[in-house]
Structure formats: C-alpha cells, structure tokens
Design a binder for these strands. Structure first.
Lengths: 206, 206
DNA sequence: CCTACCGATCGGTAGG
DNA sequence: CCTACCGATCGGTAGG
C-alpha cells in the first residue's frame, strides 16, 4: 500500500513552491478512493500534501468542490464516448456501435481510472452526488437503448432481455475499476478486446 | 428512496418490546450501504430505529462489530459456495464446476445482497476490513484457479488469459450488487442463467 | 435474573 | 499559506 506520490512541488521561479489545483485534486481523488470520501478529512489531504488545511481551501471552495470536479472529469469523458455511440452518424449498425462503445469505455476507464472509480462509488448523499448519479443514469439509459437497438436488428440472441444484457455487459466493464492499473499485466486494448470477445462470442472454444 | 423498514418491535411477553440483534444489524447494513460505513453514525442508526445510541450498544460492542458480523455473513456464504466448487469431490469437470459456482454465487448474492454489497465496498481501513479483504482475496484466488483448471482442460478459448477471464467473469457477477433487488424484474435464477449463458456462449445469435 | 432500553455526558476531532 | 479558532457532532460509556 504505497501512498499516492505527493508530486514534489515544482518550482516555477515565481511565487511559493507549491501544489497546483490539478495536483491537489489528483491526491484528493486517490485518498477518496483509498479511504472513502466521507472518511477522508481535509486535514488528511493536507497532511498527505505536506501543507495545512487552509492551503487546500486556497485552491478549492469546499470538500464537495473537490468531489464535483473529479466526478465531472469522469462524466464528461464517458458522456463523449456514449454520445458518439448512440448517434449513428456514420450509419454503422447498432451491433457495431455497441462493440465500439465497449472498447472506448474501457479506454476511458483505463485513462481516468481514479475519477471513474470515485464516480462508481457515489451514492447520492449530497446535491453534487445526486447530480452525478443523474448523469450516470442518463449514460446507462443511452447504453440500454443501444443494446435494445442491436436486439431489434436481430444481432443478439433473443433469450436474454436487452435490459439484463446491458446491465451485465457494463457491469463487467465497470468492474475494471476494482483491479485495472495502467502499470499492470494487461493493457487497455487487451482488456477491451477480451470484454468484447467474451460478450459477443463467449468463452467456449469452438 | 424508501427507508429500510424499522421492523415493528415484536412483543414476546417478557422484557421491553424492542429490536433484537438481527433487526438492528439489518437496519445498520442498509444504512451503511446507503450512506457509507464511515458516514453513518451510531446516532443515525439509533434514530432510524427510534431508539437511543445506548440501545445499540446493548446489542453490539462497537460500530466495527456491526460491520464484522455483516461481512462474516457474506464471507461465510461465499466461502461455502467456492469451497464446494474447487473440491472436485463429485469428479465433475472444471468447466462444469465453474458454471455451477457462477450460478451459486449469483444465488448467494441475491439472497444476501446487502451484506455482499458491504463486502465489495470494504477498502481495508481497519483490522476488521483488512481481515475481510484477506478472505475476499482467498475467494478470488480459488476462483482464478478454477478458471485456470478449465483452461487446462481445453474447455476455454485460449486467446484470453485465464486470470483476465476470471476477473471479468466475477466482475460481471459482482456488479449485481449495484442493481439486483429481490422484488425487481429479474429473479436470481434468470440472472444466473443469463450470466452463465453470456459467459460461455456469448451474445451473438447463431 | 433476564432483555431491552433511557437521559446525559465523556474526551476528541470534523469541515470550514 | 499559517495560527487560532468556531459550532457540531463523533464513537462510546456511565448509573439506574
């Protein structure tokens, strides 16, 4: 269990050496994921960075502000991917767009793992969380629609309800946040292929 | 968003009417899942039950005790299922035992959804959580071994690493805790069949 | 002697 | 970016 690197304060020749907003946010998200948002105090975050609580409040208006920025990062990326997939601008079949959104979701998840992890753990306890949950639900609904379209095309077996398929498929994708690490054994493309492969063709040797 | 039923205190003719240990634990687990363990105070739990904090401490030694009992419930059930699957006492193939453990895991998850949800969210911040994480890891290792055995039998396609298969497969199963509800549209058997079906044969119509 | 509590308060720590 | 604080609430325990 190594601490997230406090990222040695860069010197830029002007002002105090210190952490910028992005560096504070990165450390905050890592702590939120390690201990939970509620269990992480601003004091914990300050100690991790080697500054005082007030230094944090120099960069962010509130603890919830840190959470909101991190959640927006994940949501904006996922929204872009899903929006592109549901609009059949290029005339691709729903089946092909589904396969593509699986692949691109895995890539977003790999590239923004900490923020997406935080997003998937949000329960809706504050207005910020409620808003994030709403946006997540919109994404889920779009994806469910895409699976229904693929089913309507006749591309999918018809003995499993499209809604169940969509929950299980994106449940498999989302479970990546529990173990995927950029420096790990599997790169994002391998994982994306494996998921699409298992989902469409199954595990059984033919 | 409905509150977990405080389960009207039963009268048993002796002593005060009140909540028994199991009823307090059920309500605690529901609250822990709704707001997070750390964000839930014993005062919150007491208020939910309509009693005082002291009444909680009559039944449980500490807040962590509540967590431990809930986690043990989930872990004991899952351990039983996994232990049965990895011992090939009946001489079944690894492939068949894998399919069976998928099915039975879903059943445990459906029957003990609140406790399993709590288990999957544990991060290892206290000795109780570290112990639970250790037991979870043991389960994951056993399941990974079973997938490797099925691969060694030649039952699975060989272009995806068994470890990746096992992570994705049980990631899909575990994602149930995010949406499965006993009163929902899909019963446990349907979900179990859907997962085994997708995993082994894939989504594509043949 | 049991189960199931109450009203009040302890020493510490939270976010801001 | 610090020291010095606030209003409130935390998990846990006392006697009855």
């Amino acid at each position: 269990m190594t601490a997230p690197e406090p990222a040695a304060p860069p010197r830029r020749g002007r002002g105090r050496p210190g952490h910028d907003q992005a560096a504070v946010l990165r450390t905050a998200v890592a702590l939120f994921n390690r201990r939970g948002y509620d269990a992480t105090s601003i004091g914990d975050l300050a100690a991790e960075l080697g500054v005082t609580k007030s230094a944090i409040y120099h960069h962010f208006a509130s603890k919830e502000d840190l959470l909101r920025l991190a959640l927006d990062d994940a949501l904006d990326e996922l929204t872009a991917v899903v929006s592109a997939a549901v609009s059949d601008a290029d005339g691709a079949s729903a089946r092909d767009r589904l396969r593509e959104v699986l692949r691109r979701s895995v890539e977003v998840l790999a590239a923004h793992q900490p923020a997406v992890t935080l997003l998937l753990r949000v329960r809706g306890n504050t207005p910020t969380e409620v808003e994030a949950v709403k946006r997540r639900r919109w994404l889920d609904d779009q994806l469910a629609g895409l699976v229904r379209d693929a089913a309507a095309e006749g591309a999918l077996r018809d003995d499993i309800s499209p809604d169940l398929v969509s929950r299980l498929l994106f449940g498999m994708v989302n479970s990546l946040v529990e173990w995927y690490r950029p420096e790990g054994a599997h790169d994002a493309a391998t994982v994306a292929d494996a998921i699409a492969s298992i989902a469409f063709d199954g595990l059984v040797r033919r």
